[in-house]
């Protein structure tokens, strides 16, 4: 076929009910044609909540990373951070769409107009207390040293989790995880190489990397304790028990930090899950408000 002159021509000519492709148009459902039947014996509300947890981790970290665009130390790193954020945003879309397919929409559906697909309603029309991300991803990025340490820790946890989630009884989650593993592998390696470079670099880069480590490590307390929802889904063969990730996560992080000549802090004592239960700091409210401002001001906008 003769290609359209521009992408916009192709979209404008698309024989779709909505001739635009953008937020709020419902142009593209990331799970179109995917069988979203909930596996037998699994509570749809539990499955949906679990998808929110994993989707919100990706959405919030993507937003944090995107804050480095136009502010990164070098152009190549800016492109790298944007690419990693885009992968995470894609994972978030798939997971929030999966959450929506189970009917877990909270207050978002009543606030979003009908033409807005579920994943956009969940991203743009939930309040901060409805987010289920852990405290690890919502903390401000700090300087570049702290940013790459957090990316290392967050992608190590997520890769360990997704590698196990490939065996989930929910085929949609298993497929999203199998795809995500390819991406998280190079996210983690990229962050690890930066931690090596900074930790084993100059006195100043070492100092900043160590400060990043010392600031990020306590956030691990909110990551590895399962909520009741996760526990039920672990029993049903759908979810991964985060407590079971500690050995792998600790092993990987210790390897990187020791090679980077950084001091490994004591592992924080486990606490009752906060982020997964909807308890967040003021930093998340600020992040969510910025992310949602356009959609909330112009809820029916298309462009």
């Amino acid at each position: 076929m003769a290609h359209e002159e521009t992408v916009y021509d192709a979209l404008a000519n698309a024989a779709d009910d909505h001739g635009h492709w953008a937020f709020g148009t419902g142009f593209d459902d990331p799970l179109a044609g995917v069988d979203t039947t909930v596996p037998e014996g699994v509570d749809p509300a539990d499955l949906g909540t679990y998808c929110l947890m994993l989707g919100d981790d990706a959405l919030v970290l993507a937003q944090r990373l995107t804050q480095w665009v136009t502010a990164s130390p070098e152009l190549e790193e800016e492109v790298a951070v944007a690419n990693v954020a885009l992968d995470l945003l894609g994972q978030a879309r798939l997971l929030l769409a999966r959450a929506g397919s189970t009917g877990v929409l909270g207050r978002s559906r009543s606030q979003a107009t009908d033409s807005i697909p579920d994943e956009d309603a969940l991203a743009y029309f939930r309040d901060p207390d409805e987010f289920r991300n852990t405290g690890l991803v919502e903390a401000p990025g700090g300087d570049f040293g702290r940013t790459v340490v957090r990316l290392l820790v967050a992608s190590t946890v997520r890769l360990a989790l997704f590698a196990r989630l490939r065996g989930s009884r929910d085929p949609v989650l298993a497929a999203i995880a199998a795809k995500g593993v390819h991406e998280l592998t190079y996210h983690r390696d990229h962050a690890a190489r930066w931690v090596l470079r900074l930790g084993d670099g100059t006195a100043e880069s070492h100092r900043r990397a160590q400060e990043g480590v010392d600031a990020v490590w306590p956030l691990l307390a909110d990551v590895l304790t399962p909520t009741d929802v996760e526990q039920r889904l672990v029993d049903a063969g759908v979810a991964v028990d985060p407590a079971g990730l500690r050995e792998e996560v600790e092993g990987v992080l210790t390897t990187v930090l020791e090679r980077a000549t950084l001091t490994v802090p004591a592992w924080p004592a486990a606490t009752a899950p906060r982020g997964r239960s909807g308890q967040h700091g003021p930093e998340l409210a600020e992040l969510v408000a910025e992310m949602q401002s356009l959609a909330r001001q112009h809820p029916a906008a298309t462009w």
Partner: peptide, 25 residues
């Protein structure tokens, strides 16, 4: 049936539109 290359591939919507358009035409 189409499959995304990367989870965040922004071209999926365009691919879908191009396929529908070509087959309609």
């Amino acid at each position: 049936d189409i499959t995304p290359t990367y989870s965040g591939c922004p071209a999926m919507g365009v691919m879908r539109a191009d396929l529908v358009h070509a087959l309609h035409r």
